[in-house]
Design a protein around this nucleic acid. Structure first.
Lengths: 236, 236
DNA sequence: CCTACCGATCGGTAGG
DNA sequence: CCTACCGATCGGTAGG
């Protein structure tokens, strides 16, 4: 698909479209996809309601487009950087650490975009809810796959359960976001990192443990005391 | 404070007030405290908007009263039952297990009332947000205290960090609620229980471990393999 | 507790 | 991309 020249009417339309979605993602992360009203968005962008409306055709289409824009940012800022690290426990740690860093850096005003909109739409059936659920399944699948790869690489004990670990890591990430947003508890990110790192160290093989970061004080202390060959926490 | 007779006008007013709040808690857990509109609530109770409105004086007062009603239910259904168990690791497990059971039983249509409204209001400063945050601090404080008591009773290693554990257990509980609400993933509650029980067993003293439930297959298997005297996961 | 209203804002449309 | 609308619904009020 050819890109239109920067001076054409079409190119201008695409710039406006992109500017709308950038504002929309920020508003929706803080005020929800219903709080994202067309009038408010138009005011922020200094254009008329109907002018903005013409880009989407319905509020639902605007919501879906906003969700996809947030997904693209998440892939670019969290998933892609992890993919540049070799598969295994290092990539797994990178994925969790970057996710927490992404929320910690307040890329979106309301913290984690998907935590916010999932809570908002979990009781509202329809295409918007379905799209959010699909993206969250995609994320959990990616996390589970990354855990399974670390296991196949011999970095995690063969008895570890990737589904269980993915559930726990996702919960810790949601919990950190929740604490930060509600209480401004910025330590939450350290708490979540400590919990994840601890869980990884408990399950790691000797080879796997050597690939985990050394900076963490807790981590270093723990590793010294680690008892090899004990069962992995949470195994079936 | 004397209670009015059941036939008096005041008593009727109190019954109506209570009926409004019961509906309000259910609606708000599913559709949020903004989705809780006065018109919708009045329709559900088959009364006029203004008749209902007269009970509260403003939407904000209705929201605050709804939050306090949900808090009372939480205290009655989760905190009080745990208080009937002796302080220590047994009470701690009871508190976590009952919390998960409360959400699992879908006492409220939208799952955990406070998870829903906290996410909704975390970006909206004001008395409503402050009240939600205070109640969540109260809950986290209760959880942390219960952990500290288990430690003082010699059921948990003295090196355990109650603040860290409270953060993790709260996250697992929020994560279970989130998975259930968004994906209908009913296994989430078992996942959360397994994670919490595993964490408790890792940190428990021999005495503490003997007070944990025996029913769990994972738990029983784990306990056999447990290596005594190793450091507690997540210790500082 | 009611009927009858109010101004503001919502998503959306007509017509250009 | 605009102005000028529409019906519906919101929180809230007057007056009883």
């Amino acid at each position: 698909m050819a890109t239109a020249g920067t001076g054409t009417r079409k190119a201008q339309g695409e710039r406006t479209h992109a500017a709308i979605l950038e504002s929309a993602v920020h508003i929706a992360s803080a005020e929800g996809l219903e709080g994202l009203t067309i009038g408010r968005l138009a005011a922020e962008l200094e254009m008329s309601k109907s002018g903005l409306f013409a880009h989407f055709g319905s509020k639902e289409e605007l919501q879906l487009a906003t969700i996809d824009a947030a997904r693209s940012i998440f892939i670019r800022d969290v998933m892609r950087p992890a993919m540049e690290v070799p598969a295994g426990i290092a990539r797994l740690w990178k994925l969790c650490d970057t996710w927490l860093g992404h929320v910690e850096a307040e890329v979106f005003r309301g913290g984690c975009f998907f935590a916010a909109v999932a809570a908002e739409f979990d009781s509202r059936p329809g295409p918007v809810r379905d799209r959010i659920a699909d993206i969250m399944k995609e994320w959990l699948g990616m996390l589970r796959l990354t855990i399974a790869e670390a296991q196949e690489a011999g970095h995690l004990a063969s008895t570890a359960d990737p589904e269980q670990m993915a559930f726990e890591f996702n919960a810790l990430e949601l919990g950190a976001n929740w604490s930060m947003q509600l209480h401004g508890y910025s330590q939450a990110f350290t708490r979540a990192r400590d919990a994840i790192l601890q869980r990884l160290q408990t399950c790691a093989t000797t080879k796997g443990a050597s690939l985990l970061p050394r900076g963490n004080k807790l981590a270093a202390k723990k590793r010294l005391k680690r008892i090899k060959g004990k069962p992995c926490a949470g195994d079936p």
